[in-house]
Design a protein around this nucleic acid. Structure first.
Lengths: 209, 209
DNA sequence: CGAGTAACTTACTGGCAGTAAGTTCATCCT
DNA sequence: AGGATGAACTTACTGCCAGTAAGTTACTCG
């Protein structure tokens, strides 16, 4: 007999830790997304789940910790979506396009979660800032790798230039995502990806020294 | 025998409003830059100036108001630096390069003030967010105008594409500025500007439909 | 059924944004 | 001069929220 037999009713009651953690994380992601980091209190989140604040602290340690947990989950999903798209493409040019489309599409489908991550992810003090930087660093690394692979093997590229390009692409796509969200989700991911591709592709291929 | 005869000593005493406001604004810019928005309390700023907190409130209304005032002064300086450089250039290509160099150079010379503006300027709730967006919008507008001017007159450009390009450039330069600051101010503004120019110039010229 | 422990709560502390109400200093008027 | 007027400035609070100490309830397993 599974002990959780009576889980059909909406009564909150006691749940095991994993389930409660997920419940709290879901609520936090939603509320952070709606009201921002500053605008959200731990009491709000606890109340939304129907538990008391100290329970949230027991599971997530601090407000930063909880925010960080939201961020971490989102990061994994987003990174998966983009790298799947990139890896499935037959060549570099299509990989770049597919990566852009995956990026904008994912963020279309998670507009609120996105605002958690970017709009407020850069609280330059505290562990959340470190986490946000790690997310960016991961994408920058991914982009840098792609750029390197696209360069002719006999030209060891200028590392500074690769960094500059990777930061550019990362910064641009982040900003475009915010802009699209505020712009009601237009233009389409494909339109933006195409324009970006046109804008960057030639320049990328002229990186050889 | 100037009327303020005893001003030699470090005693704070009473000063007229304008002077006090400037003093507060300078301190706020410095402390926000050092500790971030969240890490700075109004008491900190008041103590640094040697006045009480309510005085700061009387002059700037709120923490957001004070932050906004810092932002506003910085914005004006930065925008001036960049648009001066752009307007002084003889053609579009050099204008773009000069704009990039001016941007990165200015931010080199004001690394702390920069972190006030960008790293924490996007608290997505509150009036500070609106102000930060206005700063960005101004730059995006400037870039969009430049792009339009560079296009052949007989081709009315696709507005979406111009927006995409402008957001891209703005997002990229913002991110590159943050990266350079954290990277100890390297590579040089000229190096970054050159790479960006190489990366974007061809793509920009292929925008014609 | 009783012991042990995981899930959960009440009731607090401390710090900070923001405010009400008052006090001190400078200047102008007669 | 000396009092009136207002600007510069302060003390002493409120309320909100992150974080905590210490306790209570209910599930589980021997």
């Amino acid at each position: 007999m599974t002990s959780t037999t009576d889980s059909a009713v909406p009564a909150k009651r006691r749940r095991d830790r994993a389930a409660r953690e997920r419940e709290i994380l879901d609520a936090a992601e939603r509320i952070f997304g709606e009201r921002g980091y500053q605008g959200t209190s731990m009491d709000d989140i606890a109340a939304a789940v129907g538990v008391s604040k100290p329970l949230v602290y027991q599971y997530y340690g601090s407000k930063d910790g909880l925010f960080l947990a939201c961020l971490s989950r989102l990061r994994a999903q987003l990174l998966d979506a983009v790298s799947d798209a990139v890896l499935a493409a037959p060549d570099a040019e299509q990989a770049m396009y597919a990566g852009f489309v995956a990026w904008f599409t994912f963020l279309d489908e998670h507009p609120r979660t996105w605002s958690v991550m970017v709009d407020e992810g850069m609280l330059s003090a505290g562990p959340a800032a470190v986490a946000a930087d790690e997310v960016r660093a991961e994408f920058v690394g991914l982009i840098a790798t792609m750029v390197r692979l696209n360069l002719p093997a006999d030209h060891p590229a200028d590392d500074d230039e690769i960094q500059i390009v990777a930061q550019t692409v990362s910064g641009a796509t982040e900003r475009l995502a915010i802009w699209r969200t505020r712009n009601g989700g237009t233009p389409t991911p494909e339109k933006v990806a195409t324009t970006l591709q046109n804008l960057l592709w030639h320049g990328l291929n002229s990186l050889r020294p």
